[in-house]
Design a protein around this nucleic acid. Structure first.
Length: 562
RNA sequence: UGGCCCGUAGUUCAGUUGGAAGAACGCCGGCCUUUGGAGCCGGAUGUCGCAGGUUCGAGCCCUGCCGGGCCAGCCA
């Protein structure tokens, strides 16, 4: 498993095994067709990415086809702007959506089939209101109560259904129900609703229809119309499967009709993936929008600098199972690091600058240092970084009174400037409150490039930016959006565990000039700090995608806890 | 409370028709190092939910129990 694969990706799962078996002796003649069926009422998130990689991935692997179908059966919440956004996100993830399908394209066929069921005495118009229907459905141990309208004649049902379709009745006054069994142990089978009356304007069919199919009636039949072989959905639909099958059997759709298989949806620690909660985050202003880099949406992850390859590799790695569980967000992050480690160009940036003056630097002398762009990828080449006698280094790379195991700069100590020279700190200037304002250092000209001819060693290499050449930027540092590992797991409102410090805005950060030329959206590594994504729209705004693994933080933690 | 699904290392998952317990991430240790990163090497951790049963042999089969999830929208 995962041999020779840097991402340690699993290759099979129970669904792929089932499909492979169906290919050799199943009813589909070796054909494989899946579908990804979002409702166009919101933006896609990392949970959808799991389903997308599954459905499109299987289509690729089995030389089949995956249809993007919009389940647009509820006109109240849907909009074409979501259609465009969803397509864009899927394409960004690396899959070809082709010409998408819409459940609304099948409304006529669905209606035709509904009439057929009425004619066979398998569906009826119910005049009860929603509350009564719900009450009469019974409970887990209570049988349901038959509707007084359950035994209407076929003729009356046909006439009333036609009336519903023509807008003769008010919203909510009547529904079409499948006639199955009001005493069925599976609640889904207690005469489920197939059509409801809606006055709303549908974003594609306009005002043509007054009745709209429910999920249960539309979904399976849409699968069948498209020629789906394997309809893969999440676990909560497993109680719907008998109904999925029932409709197709009554319609006589045949042995090669689609079959539904369920798998566990994705959960992530420190994250919520409920559409309702995500919407609340946006509407209440806890985040800047659906594409806020802290959001688990595809757009948010993209702005944050999560590469599509890493998201796909993550999805493939966690695999598919029927066990409901929660994956650690750290696992996703490790895939992001693995990808950027081999792809991201190294750059230097000082987020919390402190000035360093090289007292022995020749007045006005100009210098450039050659730095490696990516030690993991020789073909990335090198770049020239301007150097001068006035530099910025990171404030926490210096300590006046360093504890044991602090190897960086301190009074009287020598360190290496990455790709530069050895420098020694001679003098510390402080402000009125004792804060360090400036360091006076000397450099050793013989150590150009970072090696001492006499062979002496330094314990630390720190990053730097030439003050005279630095470019100012704003850098966003992110922490978990939710402090709790499992937000809302104890029954509380997940938003109660929102981390008030999930974003730290650093202004006046000092960047090496090459960073001004970094294309928008590109992810680079700020050496020793982490991976940072140039904002998609705003130049010189960078988002921390993910930090580097921080050994120093671990050491401190260990010392702190004894 | 009825039905269905699930229960294997800290976590998430693999475990072929029953035949000597595995991977990844994390963790620990070491090496190396012009990123205290990366990389390389090594290591630990499981009463396979519990209890019975079938069998020469059970993580895989059967029964019961316990624990978790889903289902009583005219949402999907």
């Amino acid at each position: 498993m995962g041999t020779g694969n840097p991402y340690h990706v699993r290759v099979t799962d129970f669904i792929r095994e089932k499909i492979a078996a169906d290919c050799s002796d199943g009813p589909y003649g070796g054909r494989v067709q899946t579908r990804f069926p979002p409702e166009p009422n919101g933006f896609l998130h990392i949970g959808h990415a799991k389903s997308i990689t599954l459905n499109f991935g299987i289509a690729d692997e089995f030389d089949g086809k995956c249809v993007l179908r919009f389940d647009d059966t509820n006109p109240d919440t849907e909009d074409s702007r979501f259609v465009d956004a969803i397509r864009e996100d899927i394409e960004w993830l690396g899959y070809d959506t082709g010409e998408p399908a819409f459940a609304s394209d099948y409304f006529r066929q669905l209606h035709h089939w509904a009439v057929q069921l009425i004619e066979k005495g398998l569906a009826y118009v119910d005049d009860q209101d929603a509350e009564t229907i719900s009450k009469n459905r019974g409970g887990f141990t209570e049988p349901g109560v038959d509707s007084p309208w359950r035994d209407r004649t076929v003729e009356e049902n046909l006439e009333l259904f036609e009336g519903m379709k023509n807008g003769e009745f008010a919203e909510g006054s009547r529904v079409l129900r499948a006639k199955i069994d009001m005493n069925h142990e599976n609640m889904q089978m207690r005469d489920p609703v197939m059509y409801r009356i809606r006055d709303s304007h549908h974003f594609r069919t306009g005002d043509l229809w007054k009745i709209y199919p429910t999920y249960d009636w539309a979904h399976g039949q849409s699968d069948a119309i498209e020629g789906t072989t394997h309809s893969l959905c999440t676990l909560e639909f497993d109680t719907h499967r008998p109904l999925y099958d029932w409709f197709m059997e009554q319609l006589g759709l045949g042995g090669d009709r689609p079959r539904q298989t369920e798998f566990a949806r994705l959960n992530l620690t420190h994250t919520v993936l409920s559409k309702r909660k995500l919407l609340q985050l946006v509407e209440e202003g806890h985040v800047d929008g659906w594409d806020d880099p802290r959001m688990p949406t595809i757009r948010g992850l993209r702005r944050r600098g999560y590469p599509a390859e890493a998201i796909r590799a993550f999805a493939a790695h966690i695999g598919i199972a029927r066990v409901n569980g929660t994956h650690e967000i750290e696992l996703l992050e490790s895939f992001v690091r693995t990808h950027h480690n081999t792809h991201a160009l190294r750059r230097m940036a000082v987020l919390d600058p402190i000035e360093v003056v090289l007292t022995n630097w020749p007045d006005g002398a100009a210098d450039t240092r050659e730095a490696i762009n990516n030690p993991e990828d020789e073909s990335a080449g090198t770049r020239d970084v301007p150097f001068s006698g006035r530099l910025f280094i990171e404030r926490d790379d210096f300590m006046v009174d360093p504890p044991k195991k602090f190897f960086r700069l301190a009074p009287g100590r020598e360190v290496r400037l990455r790709a530069g020279y050895f420098i020694t700190c001679d003098e510390v200037e402080t402000g009125p409150d004792g804060e360090v304002t400036r360091l006076l250092c000397t450099y050793d000209p013989a150590t150009a490039g970072g090696q001492a001819p006499d062979g002496r060693k330094v314990k630390a290499t720190i990053h730097w930016v030439s003050a005279d050449h630095a470019v100012d930027a704003t850098v966003m540092l992110y922490d978990r959006l939710f402090a709790d590992e499992h937000p809302g797991a104890d029954g509380s409102d997940p938003l109660a565990s929102l981390n008030p410090n999930s974003r730290e805005v650093r202004t006046g950060c000092k960047l090496e000039p090459a960073l001004a030329d970094t294309p928008l959206g590109e992810v680079v590594q700020f050496e020793r700090l982490g991976y940072f994504a140039h904002d998609l729209d705003r130049p010189l705004v960078f988002h921390r995608t993910v930090g580097l693994r921080d050994e120093w933080a671990n050491i401190q933690k260990r010392q702190g806890t004894g």
